Amino acid sequence: MNTSKTDWPSSLDDNELDELDRYLRGHAGDGDLLLDGVHGMLSGLAVGPLHVLPEEWLPEVLHEPFADEEEGNRVLALLAKLNDSISAELDVDAYEPILGEVDTDTGPILSAAGWCEGFSRAIDLRAGLWEKRLADDPQLMELLGPVMALAVDEGVLSAEADFAKLSDDEYDECLAQVPMVLGAVNHYWHEHPATEAELEAEVKPSDEKEEDSSGPPRQRSGHWVH
């Protein structure tokens, strides 16, 4: 990473990222987002079509009561700071996804699975609007191509057609394009905001809950990597 975190006053430093990572790991159940997933979700919300309030996305992150007020204030402050840092990094073209690390026979490798799972949950929070626009405008699907390829490769999303696994080089290439994808999607929604018809079609998460037929996301070992 070439750009110093001191360029963004709202960004978490490594110690704060470690602290938030430890908290999330210590309170995560099966299928719950870890730090990479939280970063993916907040990234998706940052570049999405409509603002999503913390009271909507916090239930995707926090699943247990805090031990005390001090812990609650600290965790919420770290999450707010992480959320603020994403837009700041995008503004100066210095965004990097937080990735998980998976143990393999040949050693640990970076994995976008958690980040992609979080990004998909961000889309789910405004599912009606995203789905309608993706169906109506192939440009948006094209912009999301590298992220969609990673998500399908990692089993986060299912593909309608047969999908060949990405080679290592293809995976790395898609991963390298994630910052550009987010910038392009952010620009897209600014240039083509949601229409009244799309807003009317939008279904709020509290209004409709569907069973997730895809099963829980893959579990990952390792730790956050930035």
Score class of each variant (00 low, 15 high):
residue 131 E to W: 07
residue 145 G to F: 12
residue 154 E to C: 04
residue 194 A to Y: 11
residue 115 W to N: 01
residue 210 E to H: 05
residue 97 P to S: 10
residue 86 I to N: 11
residue 195 T to K: 11
residue 21 D to A: 14
residue 8 W to Y: 08
residue 127 A to K: 09
residue 186 N to C: 09
residue 89 E to I: 01
residue 1 M to S: 10
residue 60 E to G: 01
residue 181 V to T: 13
residue 179 P to G: 02
residue 117 E to L: 02
residue 8 W to N: 11
residue 188 Y to T: 06
residue 162 D to E: 12
residue 205 P to C: 04
residue 173 E to Y: 00
residue 94 A to K: 04
residue 46 A to T: 15
residue 19 E to A: 09
residue 176 A to P: 03
residue 28 A to P: 05
residue 6 T to S: 11
residue 158 S to I: 00
residue 27 H to Q: 14
residue 91 D to W: 01
residue 12 L to K: 04
residue 159 A to S: 14
residue 226 H to M: 07
residue 199 L to P: 00
residue 104 T to S: 06
residue 112 A to T: 15
residue 172 D to C: 03
residue 36 D to N: 13
residue 125 L to I: 01
residue 77 A to P: 00
residue 176 A to I: 11
residue 2 N to K: 12
residue 126 R to W: 02
residue 83 N to E: 13
residue 133 R to I: 11
residue 213 S to C: 12
residue 177 Q to I: 02
residue 5 K to R: 14
residue 189 W to C: 01
residue 31 G to N: 08
residue 216 P to D: 13
residue 8 W to F: 14
residue 82 L to S: 06
residue 132 K to S: 08
residue 40 G to E: 10
residue 26 G to P: 03
residue 69 E to T: 09
residue 108 P to T: 14
residue 118 G to D: 03
residue 201 A to G: 15
residue 86 I to W: 06
residue 34 L to P: 00
residue 128 G to E: 02
residue 154 E to M: 07
residue 164 A to K: 13
residue 33 L to Y: 03
residue 141 M to I: 10
residue 23 Y to W: 15
residue 16 E to N: 07
residue 100 G to R: 03
residue 58 L to N: 10
residue 156 V to W: 04
residue 166 L to A: 00
residue 103 D to A: 13
residue 140 L to M: 09
residue 167 S to Q: 03
residue 108 P to V: 06
residue 130 W to R: 00
residue 113 A to V: 07
residue 79 L to P: 03
residue 103 D to Q: 15
residue 188 Y to C: 04
residue 198 E to T: 03
residue 12 L to N: 01
residue 4 S to I: 04
residue 78 L to E: 06
residue 62 L to M: 10
residue 62 L to I: 10
residue 216 P to E: 08
residue 143 L to S: 02
residue 71 E to A: 09
residue 169 D to R: 15
residue 36 D to P: 14
residue 218 R to N: 11
residue 34 L to Q: 14
residue 189 W to Q: 05
residue 142 E to S: 14
residue 51 H to Q: 15
residue 167 S to V: 04
residue 103 D to V: 08
residue 88 A to K: 09
residue 14 D to R: 12
residue 104 T to L: 14
residue 134 L to H: 02
residue 76 L to D: 03
residue 190 H to G: 05
residue 112 A to N: 13
residue 118 G to I: 00
residue 59 P to K: 04
residue 27 H to G: 02
residue 68 D to L: 01
residue 155 G to D: 07
residue 98 I to T: 12
residue 113 A to E: 09
residue 129 L to I: 09
residue 57 W to N: 05
residue 164 A to C: 03
residue 168 D to T: 08
residue 4 S to K: 11
residue 108 P to Q: 09
residue 93 D to N: 15
residue 93 D to R: 13
residue 177 Q to T: 05
residue 49 P to C: 12
residue 56 E to H: 12
residue 204 K to Q: 14
residue 130 W to H: 07
residue 15 N to F: 13
residue 32 D to G: 07
residue 141 M to L: 14
residue 133 R to H: 02
residue 187 H to L: 14
residue 126 R to T: 11
residue 189 W to L: 04
residue 15 N to I: 09
residue 130 W to D: 01
residue 9 P to Y: 06
residue 93 D to L: 13
residue 226 H to V: 10
residue 71 E to H: 08
residue 171 Y to L: 00
residue 61 V to K: 08
residue 49 P to I: 07
residue 19 E to M: 10
residue 122 A to K: 03
residue 85 S to L: 06
residue 121 R to T: 01
residue 219 Q to M: 15
residue 41 M to V: 02
residue 83 N to A: 15
